[in-house]
Design a protein around this nucleic acid. Structure first.
Lengths: 270, 270
DNA sequence: TTGCTCCTCACGTCACGTGAGGTGGC
DNA sequence: TTGCTCCTCACGTCACGTGAGGTGGC
């Protein structure tokens, strides 16, 4: 049928290294059509080049080999197209994030420190409808958007009255490990009734907090955390408890990222 | 002076994991201001947060720790700004490349195979002025641009007469390992005189080749290599010797990447 | 016979993450 | 005393790269 070539020849045709080809064979992502029984020589068919070219591009885009395997195994059908399309979409998001980080880094170098207005205030205790999950910081935005969309629907359909902007509570684990328990909530006037189907009830314990307003993209929240936490550490007024964010002006309400306003609340001793 | 905090506290302030902070300490990229002699506890100063924020952003941009170390060690001066600027520039190139690969992948899926016009022709032997080096495919473009710029200057100042477009010869190693010997050359009429200061003399051995014209970005050259190599493999006419590319229409001569024309020559038996 | 290509281990790299097992202060 | 935080090994992960040591065909 079609020509068989050695691994060295195939590596020149596909622009993939011999070591890489052997590795792909070992882990079952991309195998030669034939292996010589006498000497173990791998023999590739030239018709495998189409797959090899796709494989090379996916790896250049840093797609994990496990996913590459799925794509190559899924045949030429729409499953394959969907797998690639979803990865390409992730790449676009990655590109945006990279641009944001670059911009943020430029800012950091231009204006190394900006002072921060820290206020001490006491959060009101109360009840809230909430969604709670273990979330990684890589997809906290996506998760929050969905959580708040659902909570809004619940609040509207149950006829609850909001008591302030939407907010989130974070476990320490979330910041220390980059993944941990997060609760997205909407504080309510009075108590949460049984109409809150689907959503959990979150009891907000309130108490003394050092707070500040973060302006702009969430990518820069670490700066505000640093400044706020420094303030608390220097005055030695830290107290246990979760950190709370209030989305005073969230993604829904602003036109540009620069207009975002987020209140960060750090628990302190009374 | 300023407040000292534990590693856990610092990780929450800087949004870096405890494991990462310990790793940065181990490899000497970012160390606590103090280590408790009794129990080995790491103590960080809140004034270290500025560096930590820069560190976090550089890592998010995948800067290797060795380079991060250089940036952080270089103080606040212009050395540091230059180190970051050069990395940001590399990021921009990366972004462009990613976009190109995505586009190329889309093409690959839309138009899976396009037939190729393969011609057999005999390259003329002769002499050329050349630059030769061990180059990796990650910076072949940059290297080639510089090499050809210099060769052009040599040809002009020595009054040589060109015999055809610029070209490159690649060792097998270059394709198999992604890094290897490459020679960028300009073929000349007659022999190379002693005026070729700086540039080497390359003897082109000529001979029978299967050739084809590759249209468009160099990112897609692997497709042409695959098709050309398949042709040679199927007819079993392969011969030893380096692959030669001629830049019939190179980056200098075209307005858009789509207009690039590259002749790829694969050695075959006469 | 010499070179070249191919083979299989086994180990290294990079930037951490994952437990195991243990200590120290409130 | 219980929990919580911190510590140090030692090993795992991912996608290969790097030799070492050996075989097979022209």
């Amino acid at each position: 049928v079609s020509a068989l070539v050695s691994i060295g020849e195939f590596s020149r045709l596909a622009h993939l290294s011999v070591k890489a080809l052997r590795h792909y064979h070992d882990v079952g992502v991309f195998s030669p059509v034939e292996v010589d029984i006498h000497n173990g020589y791998r023999l590739y068919g030239v018709e495998q080049l189409d797959d090899a070219h796709v494989l090379r591009r996916l790896r250049e885009l840093d797609m994990p080999l496990e996913e590459v395997k799925l794509v190559l195994d899924s045949g030429g059908g729409c499953r394959r197209d969907r797998a690639i399309a979803s990865h390409l979409q992730r790449m676009e998001l990655e590109l945006e994030r990279t641009r944001d980080i670059v911009a943020s880094l430029r800012d950091l170098l231009d204006a190394p420190t900006r002072p921060l207005d820290v206020t001490h205030r006491t959060l009101k205790p109360g009840e809230a409808v909430a969604h709670r999950a273990t979330v990684a910081n890589t997809n906290i935005e996506q998760w929050s958007i969905e959580a708040f969309a659902d909570l809004s629907a619940v609040v509207a359909s149950a006829g609850f009255v909001r008591a302030g902007p939407t907010g989130s509570q974070f476990s320490n684990e979330y910041f220390e490990q980059g993944i941990g328990d997060v609760a997205a909530f909407v504080a309510l006037e009075g108590r949460v009734g049984p109409e809150a189907m689907g959503a959990e009830v979150l009891r907000l314990s309130g108490g003394a907090h050092a707070t500040t307003i973060h302006c702009g993209t969430y990518e820069d929240l670490d700066l505000t955390y640093g400044a706020l936490g420094s303030h608390v550490a220097e005055k030695q007024i830290g107290a246990p408890g979760p950190i709370t964010e209030f989305y005073v002006a969230g993604p829904d309400e602003v036109e540009t990222e620069a207009d975002l306003r987020t209140e960060v609340c750090w628990p302190i001793i009374a």
